[in-house]
Design a protein around this nucleic acid. Structure first.
Length: 416
DNA sequence: TCTGGGGTCCTAGGACCC
DNA sequence: TCTGGGGTCCTAGGACCC
């Protein structure tokens, strides 16, 4: 038995928890660079005119008209609030899989009264963090997701749904559009609709072999899960990463090679720091740069990437920065207005054992230097390589950033 | 003028091996 | 006119998730 616990309107709730004056008011939270709407409060969802993911400039009038409060993404705040929620969940159940920043699967095997448990989870999290969650419980992950959908969609449930009962499953599936099912995206929805499959129930009762043939093994598994046969297990041990991406849209367009080199070097540094924080080693690095992909004039569009390998695996800023600069030289095109760039670390070592080449002398090991840098950066801010320091004209736009209420002493809310 | 960031998995096709 | 069978590895692209 799985429970899926999912925070309601997570980012927007994180903002309103510390702004009681905004409770019950419409709120949107924007993506990095203040580009798109990525979270909406219940009041905004109810308006129906501001869709998830819409570019903010397209809904400027709507925002003004309804006096919607706008926030830039404050990931420091959201990550901290997420940790608080997850810590509570872990204390309530030993089996926990943190699935994303705002949701987790919980192992609820052996719990007799699921509704009682779900209600307790909900009220505890609400009281201790101010965050409201919905709880859906069922014998497979896909059904638990569906139960959670029901808990959010129908207020009469009190935000908690136990979907063990087969009749109840059938009833909910019959009124749930197939596109709401976990694993069924936009493209698949369209293709399924074309076959006459509109509801979750119709997908559950479709011919499994036919689904396997027409679509993929992934969708066939979804069908199986809808029938109550679990195919996806609880992964309470986080599996090691296979790649690390660090990329940004720039606040202002970059046209000079020097500024781009600086940005790419900084991305590389950050990616290596993430790598070390997971105790991993990588060998491949990809650098990519692109102009605005929405440019009308196609001749001004440019996008390219280059991949290179180090002689052996490492997690050393120094070597990856050197490689990153060589790769950038291969793809740099003069005269373009770049609006995004990034790096991808790949080809990770499967074990924690370092393997050197047979005929090469082990290079000087910088790990103690890296460790020192990481320690300093985690406490008091930034020690940087010279290659990535300098002017930050490209820093992302965050015009409506809220304070770091829970992680910076000077930002602590005052109670009068 | 303005359009996010970070991931995973699957499939098809090409290059190569014997 | 006619061109095998069995395999691995890599990459690009697509689909999905939050």
């Amino acid at each position: 038995m799985f429970a899926l616990v999912d925070c309601n309107n997570f980012y927007s709730t994180c903002e309103s928890v510390f702004r009681p004056d905004l409770r019950g008011k419409p709120i949107v939270v924007l993506s990095n660079n203040d580009g798109c709407v990525v979270a909406r409060s219940a009041e905004v969802k109810a308006l129906g005119t501001i869709k998830m993911g819409v570019p903010v400039f397209q809904v400027k009038n709507e925002i003004a008209k309804h006096q919607i409060a706008v926030f830039s993404s404050n990931y420091t705040l959201y990550a901290d609030m997420s940790h608080r929620v997850m810590r509570i969940l872990r204390s309530l159940s030993p089996g926990l899989e943190i699935y994303s920043i705002d949701e987790a699967f919980v192992d609820v095997r052996g719990i007799q009264d699921l509704i009682e448990f779900g209600t307790m989870v909900r009220s505890t999290i609400k009281q201790w963090t101010g965050i409201t969650v919905a709880v859906g419980m069922a014998p497979t992950k896909t059904l638990a997701k569906l139960a959670n959908y029901g808990a959010k969609k129908f207020p009469g449930t009190g935000g908690v749904v136990d979907l063990r009962d087969l009749d109840r499953q059938q009833k909910l599936m019959s009124i749930t559009p197939v596109g709401e099912i976990w694993g069924v995206g936009r493209r698949t929805t369209k293709a399924l609709n074309a076959l006459g499959i509109e509801t979750a129930l119709q997908l559950r009762d479709a011919d499994m072999q036919d689904i396997r043939r027409r679509f993929s093994v992934v969708l066939a598994r979804t069908v199986s899960e809808l029938r109550g046969m679990p195919c996806i297990v609880l992964e309470d041990q986080p599996s090691p990463k296979q790649q690390i991406v660090t990329s940004r849209s720039f606040g202002q367009r970059i046209t000079s090679r020097d500024a781009m080199r600086q940005a790419i070097c900084e991305f590389t540094e950050r990616a290596c720091a993430k790598l070390r924080s997971g105790g991993q080693y990588a060998r491949a690095l990809t650098v990519f740069i692109q102009t605005n992909r929405f440019l009308e004039d196609v001749s001004r569009r440019y996008s390219n990437q280059a991949t290179g390998n180090l002689a052996h695996h490492c997690s050393d800023n120094y070597q990856f920065i050197k490689l990153a600069q060589q790769l950038l030289e291969r793809i740099w095109r003069e005269g373009c207005e770049y609006n995004k760039g990034g790096v991808i670390l790949g080809d990770f070592l499967k074990t924690k054992q370092m393997q050197f080449g047979l005929f090469e002398k082990p290079k000087r090991d910088n790990s103690s230097v890296m460790e020192a840098i990481d320690t300093i950066n985690s406490r008091i801010g930034s020690v940087r390589f010279a290659s990535s320091s300098g002017y930050q004209h490209w820093a992302m736009r965050r015009d409506s950033l809220s304070p770091a209420y829970t992680t910076r002493w000077s930002d602590l809310p005052l109670v009068k």
